[in-house]
Write a protein that binds this DNA or RNA. Structure first.
Lengths: 225, 225
DNA sequence: ACAATAGTGTCTCTTAGACAATATCGA
DNA sequence: TCGATATTGTCTAAGAGACACTATTGT
């Protein structure tokens, strides 16, 4: 039987100053040596139980990052996408607060704004596009964007995260109603955001039981005033 | 480098008498020779451009069926799922009218009601479950179920298809409003369903430009009276 | 004419968005 | 006290479901 190249790739996304960024690594080997590409690598049949663990391992080994949220995106395959031959990329996406990436000081790791990407090797541009589509779609009816926030955050902060992803303003009252209805956040007692010349905002965090899962709203967030 | 077994599997779904059925094939080779399993097979790097074409080829070669709707579901992988070794199954799902399957007369092809499945080999039960979840979820906000209908169908027929998938009654008025709003159906001029002792129903079909795509509603279908 | 289901009009109720009032901070 | 933004209350508008009426067939 013929051999298929079996790899995993990870679209690691974060939010900085209201824009989505994707993490790229400088490739130190052919093909595309010297190019910036998604973190990825071969599946290791001895080390990896399955592809998701392979993705987690690759992310940790090559980028030095452990992501609390890692989900399968899709599988990209074919004869043309990799010059080495017929290949499969089981692709995942991960969301982390930007602090997690900035803590990693490596010259071979770079964050690039997703709307300024160009000339990625392989079909990595398609993979990133698919990830963005998934994140945007899923954000409109779930709590996904919480994973882009640090552990504690105010509701206005969280709303700006949703707005950055969806690229649409959200009605403040509806947003708060929706978060309330989701029932996945809890106020951090006594913790408020001080320092600004206005009424301080209450800090919230994910309830413990939702720390590593994901909740969905019935109908999604819609743009507003 | 180690070798990964690279396969595709297809969850071929259809609707009969208001119930979802999945097509199973009798395996003629080890492993699990003699068991009923999803149509699947190795990726052929010479013949297949990519995994989706492999899935289409497998479906045609092994089940004798060409499906107008074939979409990637997810990829299942790991050391344990196949006794032959570390394997990857890039899984797809397909929807066809039951007539397409019944036209195929083969003793090694069988339709089984999805809620009566048990003891499928590999992790095929998980794959079927994932397909059902996807179809149900997607049906609630898209035109997916029309692929389970024959070329022409009445709106009441289509509604029963939605209801069979979603397992919930749908409000008739809302359903018609939603289909109207989707704008993907067109009445077949002069074609009505006769023979029943009531007002005949108008036949509809997918507009030509949607014949092989898929449309989504804004908010989904909701249960009703 | 009657039973049965298709197809349509319309009212009500739910829910999202608009608007605006109140709360609480730093300056 | 003032300016700014958080937080909350409430009105309005859009959309979904309930209900009921009309249409059209076979018997």
């Amino acid at each position: 039987m013929e051999s298929v190249i079996c790899t995993v790739d990870v679209v690691l996304l974060t939010l900085r100053e209201g824009n989505l960024y994707v993490a790229l690594l400088l490739r130190d080997k052919a093909p595309f040596q010297g190019a910036w590409a998604l973190p990825g690598g071969y599946v290791h049949v001895e080390a990896d139980e399955d592809a998701e663990q392979a993705a987690g391992r690759v992310l940790e080994e090559k980028a030095g990052i452990v992501s609390p949220y890692l989900e399968q995106l899709a599988t990209f395959s074919g004869r043309a996408r990799d010059p080495r031959g017929w290949s499969v990329s089981i692709s995942y996406y991960a969301l982390v607060p930007s602090a997690v990436i900035e803590r990693v000081e490596r010259s071979d790791l770079r964050l690039v704004a997703v709307d300024q990407l160009k000339n990625l090797p392989f079909d990595h541009l398609n993979i990133v596009r698919a990830a963005l589509e998934r994140v945007r779609s899923k954000s409109s009816y779930s709590s996904l964007p919480v994973y882009l926030c640090s552990e504690q955050f105010t509701l206005p902060q969280l709303q700006t995260v949703y707005e950055a992803i969806l690229k649409e303003p959200i009605n403040k009252v509806s947003f708060r109603r929706k978060m309330e209805e989701l029932g996945i956040l809890e106020p951090v007692l006594g913790a408020v955001e001080t320092g600004k010349a206005n009424r301080p905002a209450q800090y919230y965090r994910l309830k413990a039981q939702y720390r590593h899962t994901l909740s969905q709203t019935g109908r999604g967030l819609n743009p507003g005033s």
